[in-house]
Design a binder for these strands. Sequence first.
DNA 1: ATGATGTCCTGGGCGC
DNA 2: TGCGCCCAGGACATCA
Length: 274
Amino acid sequence: MPELPEVETIRRELDKSIRNKIIDSVLLCRKDLRIKFPDRFSEKLIGRKILSVSRRAKYLLIELNDKNILVIHLGMSGKILVKDHAPDPLGKHDHVVIRFKNGSVLIYNDTRRFGLMTLVPNKQLKEHELFRDLGPEPFSGEFDAKYLLDKLKNRTAPIKNILMDNRVVVGVGNIYTCESLFRSHISPIRKGNTISSEKANSLVKNIRDVLKEAIDSGGSTLRDYARSDGDSGYFQHKFKVYGREKQSCYNCGSIIKRIVQQGRSTFYCPNCQK
DNA sequence: ATGATGTCCTGGGCGC
DNA sequence: TGCGCCCAGGACATCA
């Protein structure tokens, strides 16, 4: 999936392109994604106006003028495109087409269908099952070295797995966890409870820095991700370790290693990261 | 409770 | 050209 920078890039674009638009029709090409669409989903959207587009973790929150939020998660392969006209024919994995009064359309495309789209009343968002267990946003004041150390102190799991746990901090996926650990010179296999307060401090800074730099680059474009205007992000060119197995470390020249943790690839420099 | 593993799904790329 | 693997920006459920 898009990680936080990719979702944030899409959010910014959508906030410009669909804010104040009124939904004219909704086409659902199937009955579910990762979860079912709400009952009478189309009827609940038609006639509503988009007030804003915000973000929590990797969820896009599209605020409607009826005190409901259209929640969208892109999973691993979800894409949102906004166009002047609906394509004809639709793409194979175009699952939802939302048409606005001016004729423009928002197309939700998701090859693997790990994404979701649902409606949640504004006031119930925090307690909703998708949101209630989420940890702090990485850019929030709550996410600091003291907080992180507290979360790590009794944990023997590898630091990489802990950072990818949304209950600890949200939005930091496979790529940016690897990149942050490299910047902080921390081995991804280090146990959480062995991280010093200096290292925790460094991690918080580097997680924020790498996410911010990626947002400034319009995210990273790999296989599936595309921006809502169809352009690519370009942060992928700035990866220091992700996807660089068997290549040499930009710091020390050692060979970048790929290992598997929780079924996900981890890339790191065994010499720089201890 | 924590940590490790398996699952949802489709498609691209590789070796044979 | 085809087959069988392995791989993929996530999030859960389930097991010991």
